[in-house]
Design a protein around this nucleic acid. Sequence first.
DNA 1: CTAATTTT
DNA 2: AAAATTAG
Length: 61
Amino acid sequence: MACTKPVKVKLPDGGEKELVPKKVWSLSPKGRKGVKIGLFQDPASGKYFRAKVPDDYPECS
DNA sequence: CTAATTTT
DNA sequence: AAAATTAG
């Protein structure tokens, strides 16, 4: 499923913006809860970066 | 250190 | 191949 809702993320340049992740997946060690990680693209630089997304955010590609 | 993922 | 991501 495609990622739709924007997430408030800290940009690499320090700014804050609502971006739609390129991909979201769960990053969880065995036995621990872990976190959801989103892959985003910085609108300024075009560079990709990762950031935590809310635990209830659906996995998507 | 562990977890998955993908850009760099 | 390494970096980065979060938090227990």
